[in-house]
Design a protein around this nucleic acid. Structure first.
Length: 568
RNA sequence: UGCCCCUUAGCUCAACUGGCAGAGCGUCUGACUCUGGAUCAGAAGGUUCCUGGUUCGAUCCCAGGAGGGGCAACCA
């Protein structure tokens, strides 16, 4: 069939999963359209790793004209909560996907129970009454076979009786457990009589209340839920590779014809952060961040709050691709996707993070000029302009002035000239300091001939810096977010410490009184900008309001000056 | 004393199952010249972990070896 398909250069490159799905379609293997599912457990917020899976599952359904369900894998009553299902639904939709059906594994409990009884009837499952400890010990180790439980040979009648009484709530937690009867010496540990059902007599399930006294384990619930829904390809991460054996065993024993099959792919690992709901939950619970939507969190909610657009996340998912090898992705790859998206979308504005006052000594007192400023650079296919007030007193960024600059410093320094973006070329004449020697302001002169767009505006100077008019600028709070951890792999810490030891104390730096051009004052919250030469920002949807503007740094601009400095 | 997965450019990763090995970042060079800490373009860069085998042809298939990872939760 490959010969029959002409090579199409414009066709997107496919990963191994899409290849397999394409093959399913070509051979009619499943006799139905490709069906996938995204199966989160509602015990935490979704993060970047889930985003990868979402893009994969929903993307395949879309590309192949199939379907994708959202199914909550809610089989553990101790950890799950309705607030998480709501956040998950919101996040999936925000990412730009719509599910065909919304399902809950907890709605399949009755069917699962029927399958359990059927397995018992067939002699393929039994009730074990060993303690948790005994079960673990008797499972053996990776290098030695386990020993069968003394209860393994119970009669079908006794098993059935016990199972029904488990369900009826006659036994306390841990008294009995339902196990598949497979092989205690199986080379795959998963297949050593895996547990199917456990007693949770007192548990309160967030959806089923106290009606159920027994709950299925992942292996028992997952594959069968897929089969019930008619999924064709069950996509999961690499660590479930060994579970595939029990997946296949169960759907076959349950009598499903043409059952779904599992394909594993590498989970996402991102530098300088953690992608584990357990760890993210600790960050939230122990107060290391302000919540699941803290802009430093790699959660979908955190990225959204920070200002990242769903387009950037989807583009990122596409570039990292999917493979069968564990993949640790550099944070720079993600930041690149974010910049790449924002660069083409958001208007430019001028903001001064660390204000240093500049007085133009030869500019008439009280005079205000209106300068026209482009919203987008020449290579962005968007247009727009705004007017910037320009006066005798300005603010520039402290970083843009050096009293004793190194060779390649093209910004302002005593006796040197620099262009003010959209404005004039100015020259630094003198530096004013306070008693401690700290620089308090600069006295400069401007060249009236060099106004932007004017007749003689083409005089060249080495650098252009951003500025705001002191009389017109709006004060604002700026939150500079940086990576949450100070090392690429937060888990790589000395013996006896955990990932919290790698937390970056500088991950949030708040600038209480920055200055921004007045044009942004009435923009709605959630507006995004590039503050020229600084980075991309979004006004915070929770805390920003007229009179108290708050901007989150989404991502900085590529910083080649920092590299220059490093080179020394 | 097991079973399974992985090893490709400086780095992080792709490569549609046998047909000239690709991308991002980084590096270098150039362009624009009012983001010079932005943006854009081009280039350099590979013994595809090692050793054998099969084949006209191997990153891909087979055997052995080395290195990394997953599996022994009544979590998912």
């Amino acid at each position: 069939m490959t010969d029959a398909t002409p090579l199409d250069a414009s066709a997107p490159r496919r990963d191994f999963i899409r290849e397999m799905v394409a093959d399913d379609v070509a051979t009619g293997r499943f006799g139905r359209a490709p069906a996938t599912r995204f199966p989160p457990e509602p015990n935490g917020f979704l993060h970047m790793g889930h985003a990868k899976s979402i893009c994969l599952n929903f993307g395949i359904a879309k590309e192949f004209g199939g379907s994708c369900n959202l199914r909550f894998d809610d089989t553990n009553p101790f950890t799950e909560d309705m607030k998480y299902v709501e956040s998950i639904k919101r996040d999936v939709q925000w990412l730009g996907f719509r599910w065909d059906h919304e399902y809950y594994a907890s709605d399949y409990f009755e069917q699962l129970y029927a399958i359990a009884e059927a397995l018992v009837q067939k002699g393929k499952a039994y009730v074990d009454s060993q303690t948790e400890e005994e079960i673990r010990v008797n499972r053996g180790t990776v290098t030695s076979p386990g020993t069968p439980s003394p209860y393994r040979t119970r009669s079908v009648e006794e098993n059935l009786d016990l199972l029904r009484r488990m369900r009826a709530g006659e036994f306390p937690d841990g008294a009995h457990v339902l196990r598949a009867k497979i092989d205690l010496a199986h080379p795959n540990m998963i297949m050593r009589d895996p547990l199917l059902l456990r007693i949770r007599r007192e548990a309160h399930h967030y959806r089923r209340g106290s009606t159920w006294k027994i709950y299925p384990l992942y292996d028992f619930a997952h594959g069968l839920s897929d089969a019930i829904e008619g999924i064709t390809r069950s996509l999961c991460t690499l660590e479930f590779k060994d579970n595939r054996d029990i997946y296949d065993w169960l759907v076959a024993e349950a009598g499903f014809t043409n059952p779904p099959t599992q394909i594993e792919f590498a989970r996402l690992e991102l530098d300088y952060t953690v992608l584990s709901k357990r760890k993210l939950l600790r960050l939230v619970n122990e107060g290391h961040v302000s919540g699941w939507d803290d802009p430093r969190m790699p959660t979908i909610a955190g990225l959204r709050r920070r200002g990242v657009r769903p387009e950037a996340i989807r583009a990122f998912a596409e570039v990292i691709g999917v493979a069968r090898k564990d993949a640790r992705v550099e944070i720079a790859t993600f930041e690149h996707a974010v910049r790449d998206d924002l660069n083409m979308e958001v208007p430019r504005r001028l903001a001064v993070l660390n204000p240093l006052k500049v007085i133009l000594t030869n500019f008439p007192e009280g005079r205000v000029e209106q300068l026209e400023a482009q919203d987008y650079p020449h290579d962005v296919p968007k247009t727009g302009t705004r007017t910037l007030p320009f006066g005798r007193e300005l603010y520039i960024d402290r970083d843009d002035f050096m009293e004793d600059p190194p060779k390649k410093f093209f910004r302002l320094s005593p006796g040197n000239e620099v262009r003010l973006r959209f404005g004039y070329i100015i020259k630094c004449d003198s530096v004013v300091k306070d008693a401690t020697g700290a620089i308090v302001e600069l006295h400069c002169s401007y060249d009236p001939e060099t106004r932007s767009g004017g007749a003689n505006s083409d005089r060249k100077v080495k650098g252009t810096i951003h500025w705001v008019s002191a009389a017109h600028a709006l004060s604002c709070e700026i939150r500079l977010y940086d990576r949450l951890f100070s090392q690429p792999d937060p888990d790589d810490v000395p013996e006896g410490q955990d990932f919290l030891a790698a937390l970056n104390p500088q991950s949030l730096v708040v600038i209480a009184d920055a200055k921004v051009e007045p044009t942004v004052g009435n923009d709605p919250v959630g507006s995004r900008y590039q503050f020229e030469r600084t980075g991309y920002f979004m006004s915070d949807v929770e805390d920003s309001r007229p009179g108290h503007l708050v901007f989150n740094r989404i991502v900085g601009l590529r910083d080649s000056w920092a590299k220059e400095l490093k080179k020394g």
